[in-house]
Design a protein around this nucleic acid. Structure first.
Lengths: 228, 228
DNA sequence: CAGGCGCCTTGATGGCCATCAAGCTTGCCG
DNA sequence: CGGCAAGCTTGATGGCCATCAAGGCGCCTG
């Protein structure tokens, strides 16, 4: 990929790449590819051999798995400036652990695994950043496992809404759902029907107000209390 | 802790410590503590400040979380020679993300976070081992999230049984449940009653035979097919 | 050996939520 | 404007599984 100073600047502010020297960043970008993709476009498949990991610059991507019966569970919804599939970095025989598919047309950068590994070897702060990132991911997974295992679907939906808020939000807050309701439903592991019914029930109880993909939380505290 | 050559030998074969020099291993052990604990003993609490991570040498430990209503979800059951709570290594303000409690009386080694971090900084192969380990953990989580989200309880139990087998097992195989059935039930997120009923149903279908904590899988292939 | 306490099992009941099946809204395009 | 398609909503039904309740079994202790 030829150089792109806007991108170089963006990388300098991304936790994974912040600690790189200019030369290292240059080397990484030289081996990277810029790719445009469409909504609905297949990016990679679960089990495919993996030589690259990604940074999303625009649009939206879903990472998901399929059950033997064909049901889809969305593991992550990726938004611009998030990286994904970094976990292939350290596998012996790297293969993508999920399917990746475009949800909204956009652009991503595909970094080469080997090049980044070489840079890691030279740079402990970057190692540290990667490990920090993986730790956060692990924490998030534990939260999700806990939520899936312990809680009913209403709790999961409320939990999801509250997670959209900036930390420290209180009183009345409005949020925009980051994707179509179907996708969010799949992410919190309920059917679209149930998702719709839960939003309606919360509205009837005057905890939220829904207008299209805008959700106004009338009072964060009482919503938090009414979880189950 | 004063030196213990059996332990030093054990560390040399543990993926997290295999790449350390003798001097590094010595330094780590000098700052480590050996601790005995009892079944039912509280080891650390969710949210406690965390300065150490652990290697289990004998006995059994459960890592779990509690819902607001007090329901317990077991995140991991730790067996001898497994490490746990390594994820506190890279947190800014390290706190244990789960409760830890003894299940069977045993002994563990408590390593100092700071000492190990210092060693990591000197040793890329060890960084690599840690990252590899974290990657595996992340994969395991994704599998678990998928299982919890997509599958019914019968599937989860069968999945758990199959995961106990050495890879490549076929035909008739016997396994010993690694803990009391109650604990395993909590781990796969079903009630003890349901767990019991599922084992009975599988027995009635002549897929397994259960005797106490011994489970004989009559035919691995057909069990795999009969998952749902 | 009797009693008690966990753990496991089995049965009966009910609630949550997936599924199936219509309608409804919105946006797109001829 | 009309028509279609996709997403969302609402209703009816049924199945899975948690819950409550009771009984059995092994193990420990007095």
């Amino acid at each position: 990929m030829h150089s792109d100073s806007a991108l170089a600047r963006e990388l300098r502010h991304h936790y994974l790449f912040a600690a790189l020297s200019d030369a290292q960043r240059e080397r990484l970008l030289a081996s990277a590819e810029k790719r445009r993709f469409l909504a609905g476009e297949h990016l990679f498949g679960h089990g495919d051999e993996a030589g690259r990991f990604f940074l999303l610059r625009s649009g939206c991507v879903k990472l998901y798995r399929l059950s033997p019966e064909g049901d889809e569970k969305i593991m992550r919804l990726i938004r611009p400036s998030q990286t994904f599939a970094e976990s292939i970095l350290f596998m012996d025989a790297p293969r993508y652990p999920v399917h990746g598919e475009g949800v909204e047309t956009g652009e991503l950068i595909a970094f080469e695994r080997g090049t980044f590994l070489g840079i890691l070897q030279e740079s402990f702060p970057t190692c540290r950043a990667v490990m920090d990132q993986m730790t956060r991911r692990i924490q998030a997974h534990w939260d999700e496992i806990e939520t899936l295992a312990l809680q009913n679907s209403r709790y999961r939906v409320v939990h999801y809404l509250l997670a959209l808020l900036p930390s420290g939000a209180a009183g009345r807050v409005a949020v925009t759902l980051p994707a179509r309701k179907m996708l969010i439903a799949a992410h919190v592991a309920v059917t679209p029907e149930t998702f719709s019914r839960i939003l309606r029930a919360l509205s009837d109880e005057r905890l939220i107000e829904v207008t299209g993909d805008e959700v106004a939380i009338l009072d964060v505290e009482s919503l938090r209390r009414h979880m189950h």
